[in-house]
């Protein structure tokens, strides 16, 4: 809807939604508009779009409740599928990792270990709460540096449109597998960095071994579940 976006700047257009920057009651906001896809059956399209908006709000809230930073929700229009979220000042973890490689190509990614460990810890908390993100990538994490120089900043998790609720190690394993693939394809040579993340996940998760076993299994076969037998 054009009137939401007066004086708003489009900052990204994904497959699911257009994302704008704007202002709401004097606060900087992100306006996320899910659009319909003409190639889908209208009935299915409407259901899917709505479902993802609702899933996003639910997961954002469930994460907040367990102490994971997520943007605050300021407004929702469930008819036009528009969501207004708190604007988070920061850098995507994707940019953080890429910048580090440019700045310190010799050091591997050792400078990032503290931040990466906190991501592993956050994912462990998220999975312990049975929240599956569904689209874990380094672009869906925003690093906000701390005002105190000796502290590491906060990681905000965003983009929960594909999230779901599940206690199954399979789903958690696939979640981690998706992140691993995203990590290694976006940041070549970052195997060690992902291992640090995984170790932090294991150290903080209440019951990591079934998830890690599933991750190994999924690595062998790919993300889709085998339907044989």
């Amino acid at each position: 809807m054009e009137f939401y976006c007066q004086n708003s700047k489009i900052i990204s257009q994904g497959a699911e939604a257009k994302v704008y920057e704007g202002v709401f009651c004097d606060r900087p906001v992100i306006i996320k508009e899910r659009f319909s896809k003409k190639y889908r059956l209208p009935e299915i399209d409407e259901k899917l779009t709505k479902k993802r908006l609702i899933q996003e709000i639910r997961a954002l809230q469930r994460c907040r409740k367990v102490g994971i930073c997520t943007p605050a929700i300021y407004f929702v229009d469930t008819v036009r599928n528009i969501l207004l979220l708190q604007h988070i000042n920061g850098l995507t973890v994707r940019d953080l990792v890429s910048n580090e490689k440019k700045l310190n190509p010799q050091e591997g990614y050792a400078n990032l270990y503290p931040v990466i460990k906190s991501i592993g810890r956050i994912l462990a908390i998220m999975h312990d709460a049975n929240i599956i993100h569904g689209d874990l990538t380094t672009s869906n994490m925003i690093y906000q540096s701390s005002k105190e120089s000796n502290k590491i900043g906060n990681i905000f998790m965003i983009d929960f449109g594909l999230s779901s609720s599940s206690a199954m190690p399979e789903d958690k394993g696939v979640d981690l597998y998706v992140l691993e693939r995203a990590f290694l394809s976006t940041h070549p040579g970052s195997e060690q960095l992902f291992n640090v993340l995984l170790q932090a996940y294991k150290d903080n998760s209440k019951n990591p071994s079934p998830v890690i076993n599933k991750l190994d299994e999924v690595r062998m076969r790919g993300r889709k579940r085998t339907m044989v037998g």
Binding site: L53, I54, I57, R58, L60, Q61, R64, C69, A72, I73, Y74, F75, V76, T78, Q86
Partner: peptide
């Protein structure tokens, strides 16, 4: 998160 952000998020989330 600041308390006001917790509160407004909860206010909006009741819709779903």
């Amino acid at each position: 998160s600041p308390l006001v952000d917790c509160v407004v998020s909860q206010m909006i989330a009741k819709e779903v």
